[in-house]
Structure formats: structure tokens, C-alpha cells
Design a protein around this nucleic acid. Structure first.
Lengths: 325, 325
DNA sequence: TTGTATGCGTTATCAG
DNA sequence: CTGATAACGCATACAA
């Protein structure tokens, strides 16, 4: 293995002091372009890589963003969504030269609020991106209040000085996708998601608005974002519906399974997961770009870290018709 | 936010020196149980969490494991597999109090071998776990040779002093799953995966052994682990087969799509991804426990870090029949 | 504009 | 068994 050199060696080779090298690397303006070049030349030649550990210790700056992912809760969907979040986030982090540290919910599930705070503290991150936050998640809310972290919440409409949020317009999205399968005056069943999900209310609002506009006869039922639950519900339906609007693709799949072959009841899902393409039925769905959302979350975190106030980022969606494979 | 305290404050409160506190926390044997208790009491009360950054700098030990994941290559399958690898790895890491840092292939795709080494160096990890290694991946092989890392390779049969591997018995697995759909004397098509995949040869060997045992008439074709490729191949088949044995579930799905409705050609897949349950056809597959493999990889890495020599870990699989949903 | 000196929070080497 | 003290590699206030 090559011997890795330190800032001292670079300084020696460049004929300057250690602090000068440090300043060059930190882009201090008080450095003459002459010495800057001299130093950079040595850096290139030697392939010097600063020791981030020593740097962090010295500066007391922790240039890391924690990416918290709630796997179990939220939608119990195919891991595709979380994986795309992660990939999008890491891609953007690479671009911005940021270090990301991944944290899954089971790392903190058994900890108290205070211990959770300690856990995040031990991660040496200055910001946290949260995917899959629940309304009743006390730990994360405890972090908001006591954590002194810059935070980015995905899919929850929370904005403060230190908190940004990133999401699609769930309300409009649900409105638009439902509009694709609901005709004027139709009798429609809306299958919403879990009550503790932030998106649930936003999507429900969109559905209700459409119901007003199209004078729908609307029933609402809670499908818990669960395929099996959706199956049961549709199985035991006593009333005839023209369309079933589901707040997730998985529920849409469950609902479809419960219908007899060749049924003409229209069904819509939400999210646009790839699994939908394998079902062999026609679906309409609101496709989210999870990869892009992941990247946008990192961008938002970086803006917070640079001192900007929290803000809301809205990502576009598209309404997509999935056909037989 | 609570003020976090340091080892100095703990020492003061316990009435001992900092070095004693450090030794207590590092489980030095040379500490009297009396002072040990005294110190631990203060640690508990204050909720003291050691600064891992300072610790790493001082000890020059980097207690981190890099988890490298090749997303694009290998099987272009649903992200389920990678997600399960990750979750299993993180779960085990939490149990062992190890820090994991995730690295995706696009972080190093555009780097030279030397730069890749530098990149991993900057991660401050002492070991690397590799998921999805290709035979022709020069960078990882460069790391083997010049990296001075403890490494764990998943799904490649490589063992040295500093390298362990973790996988199922692909050869036996392919043999067993194929045995479920191949009768004596059958004409069988084996659709293997990409040539640069380490598993490809192992699985092919299993298939060939079965062909010997059952006196099969065996044709082998390369499906590249691709669903579409499998579809094309089966679509253009000139010969009639009794069974098609595929080296991945996705190829099995593609092959099935290409067959006419109600065809009695038997098909087997490999991996046991959940998608298989949504296809509405009967499949036999060799189910891998990816979560467990991820955990086993971390365990193997930890053993290497503790000074043991590289070893081979074989994880059990099970043959599973997927029925109509 | 550059260099010197000190400190960041631990660990490790000694001496006691 | 315990306690001073010197690193660890870098960042920064301050001096030059």
C-alpha cells in the first residue's frame, strides 16, 4: 500500500508552512495565487487527501448529513422506493462532496428520546434528512425541538428556520390521477392510507376536491397502505362503485385482485412503483421520481447548512398509465 | 440542546484522571473494579458519549467498515436484493457497535484505480464489504492488491489471508432447483447469466451436474440476467424444450412471458425475489436470504478485523415453489 | 500575505 | 493499578 502523506509533508515539499497549506485547501482569500499554485501542484503530485477526522476534530465542524430511513412504517412497499431515495441522495452528495451516513429506524427503535438524541450526536452529523416520518413519531419530533440539527423532512409539510421539506404536491397529484378514472356523477371509493402518515391527509384533500368538482358520490375507507387490507375491503364491498381510487399502488394491486376477472371497475394507484408493470392489468398512477426527491433532499440540507432558512421544495410528478406487460 | 460533556468532565466528577476513564471505557484489565464502577456510574449519570472522531485520531484506528454496492451491474433486478443486503448489514453492525459507511458504484465509476484507492482511504474505513463484484472489475481487484484492507466479497469464491467471502452454495442451489422441474431424459434449456458474474459459472456447474445425473439433453444460452433478453430468446426458440432453467427470477419471468398462455413448459428461477409472487404463474426458485447474507458479511468483516484469517461462509438457501397469487 | 503556537478530545507510553 | 504527558493531523487566532 502506498504511504499516505499528511499536510506536514505537503507543506515541506511546497516550501510553506502547514497553516498555509490548510488555508489553500480551505480556499482562504488571503493566499497569493502564487503560493496557491505552488501548494496545489504538490497536492496533485502527491495525491494528498486531507484527514477528515483530524479536520473535524480541529474545526469542530461535522460535515456529515445523516440520512434517516423509516423502513417498516409508511408504506410497507417494495424496497424500490427507499433504494431510489438513497441512490438519489448519495448521487447528489457525491456531487456536492458531502458525506452521508445512513441510519435505519431499527437503530433507534428501542432507544428513549434522550438516547436517540445521543445516538445522533455520536454520528457527528450536523443535519438529518428524514424519509418516512410518521405523525406520531415522538423521537423525530424530539429531535426537532432539542436536537439543534438542520433537518429536511420528506413528505411532511413542515417548515421552520431549521427545517425544510421536500415532496410532490400530493393533493394535486391525487386529484389528477383520480380525475383520470372518475367521470361526472360517478360513485367512487377512496382508499386512503394510514392515519399517521403525513401524506394521507394531503392526498385525501385532493380526492375531496375532485369529488366536489365532479359531483362524485364519494366513500372513504382506510386501507392502511396495505395490499392485503385493500383486498379484504374490496372483497367485502356491499355497494357497487364505478371506480376505486387508492392512495398507493400496493393497495390498488390488492383491490384489483379482489375484483372478478374482467371487471370494469376502474382503479388508480399512487407512486408508480415498477411492480405495477408486472401485474398484467391496466392501472393509472401518480408517478413520483423518488431518485430526484432523494437528491432534492440533500440539496435542501446543504442550503440549510449554508445558513439559509427552511423552505419547501415541490417536485413534479406525472400521471402515468400502466398497460399490460 | 443539552451540553455534551467530555472525558475530562467525567474524570473530574469521578475523581480520577482522564486516562483512567479512557481505560475503563476500553475495558482495560488493569483497572480495579472499584474505580471501574465509580467511573461507569458517572458515565451513566451524565450520558457521556465518547467522541469517536477524537478517538479515531488518537488511536489511528478507524473503526468503520465500508459497504460497497454495485447497483447497475450484476442482476439488473428489483432493488429488493440490495436493500435487504443493506438492512441485514446495518442490523448486524448495530448489534456489534460498528459503524458502516455506504458506497455506491457511481461514486467511483469515473475514478482511476489509484483515485479509487484514495477515495476509500478518505472514507477512513479499515475494511470493505463488496456486494455485486464483477470478474472484470479492475478497481476492486486493485484494492485487493494495493489497498491493505480487510475485505469481504459476497458471491465470489475468493479467500486469502485478508479476504473472506459469503454466499450460498450456488452450484448445489442451481442443481436442486432445476431438479424440481427436470425429469429423466428431458430436453432442457439453461439460461445462464452474464459471463462476468462470479455466480454464473457456479450455477452453470450445478446445472451441468444435474444434466449428467438425469441424462438431460441440455442446451445453454446466455440470458445476461435480463428479462427482455430472456423474452427474446424464448420467443425465437426453434426447438421444443420440456423445461427452461433460468439463472435468475427476472429471466424466468421474461421467459414465461414469451410462452403461449397455458404452456406446459416448466420454468425455474433463482433468488426468490418477491416480485415472483405477483406474476400469476407457477415458478420454482432458489430463495436466498439476502438479509442474512448482509449480516453474515458484517460478521465476517468483524472476524477479519479481529485478526482472523479469511474464510468462506456458506449460507443456506431453500427451494421454494411460488404459486398463483 | 504568511508563519507560529495552541487546542480539538482521545489514546498510549511511560513513570510512579 | 493509576496519573502525567505527549502525540494524532489539522484549523485558527494572533503575531510578524
Amino acid at each position: 500500500m502506498h504511504e499516505r502523506i499528511g499536510i506536514k509533508e505537503v507543506a515541506a515539499k511546497a516550501g510553506v508552512s502547514v497553516s498555509t497549506v490548510s488555508k489553500v485547501l480551505k480556499n482562504y482569500t488571503s493566499i497569493s495565487s502564487e503560493t496557491r499554485e505552488k501548494v496545489m501542484k504538490v497536492v496533485e503530485e502527491t495525491g494528498y487527501i486531507p484527514n477528515t477526522v483530524a479536520s473535524a476534530l480541529s474545526s469542530k465542524q461535522k460535515n456529515r448529513i445523516a440520512v434517516f430511513i423509516n423502513v417498516n412504517d409508511k408504506f410497507q412497499q417494495i424496497d424500490e422506493i427507499n433504494m431510489l431515495y438513497i441512490l438519489g441522495a448519495f448521487d447528489e452528495a457525491r456531487r456536492q462532496n458531502l458525506e452521508l451516513v445512513t441510519v435505519f429506524n431499527d437503530s433507534i427503535d428501542k432507544l428513549s428520546d434522550e438516547e436517540t438524541l445521543g445516538y445522533f450526536h455520536s454520528l457527528f452529523a450536523d443535519s438529518i434528512i428524514v424519509f418516512g416520518l410518521n405523525r406520531n413519531d415522538t423521537k423525530m419530533h424530539y429531535l426537532f425541538d432539542h436536537g439543534n440539527y438542520k433537518m429536511v423532512i420528506v413528505d411532511a409539510d413542515i417548515v421552520t428556520d431549521n427545517i425544510s421539506c421536500v415532496m410532490i404536491d400530493h393533493c394535486q397529484g391525487q386529484h389528477d390521477v383520480a380525475a383520470g378514472i372518475c367521470d361526472f356523477g360517478d360513485t367512487v371509493l377512496y382508499m386512503k392510507g394510514k392515519d399517521d402518515g403525513y401524506v394521507t391527509d394531503m392526498r385525501l384533500a385532493g380526492m375531496k376536491r375532485l369529488a366536489m368538482e365532479k359531483k362524485l358520490k364519494l366513500d372513504v375507507v382506510n386501507g392502511d397502505f396495505s395490499e392485503d387490507r385493500a383486498y379484504e375491503i374490496v372483497r367485502n364491498l356491499t355497494r357497487k362503485y364505478d371506480a376505486i381510487v387508492c392512495a398507493s399502488d400496493l393497495m390498488a394491486i390488492g383491490a384489483r385482485r379482489a375484483l372478478p376477472e374482467g371487471s370494469d371497475i376502474r382503479i388508480s394507484g399512487f407512486d408508480g412503483i415498477r411492480l405495477l408493470g408486472y401485474i398484467g392489468e391496466e392501472f393509472v398512477t401518480c408517478r413520483q421520481d423518488f431518485y430526484r426527491i432523494g437528491g432534492a433532499a440533500v440539496k435542501a440540507a446543504q442550503r440549510l447548512r449554508e445558513g439559509e432558512k427552511g423552505e419547501r421544495t415541490i417536485i413534479p410528478y406525472d400521471i402515468k398509465k400502466i398497460r399490460n406487460h
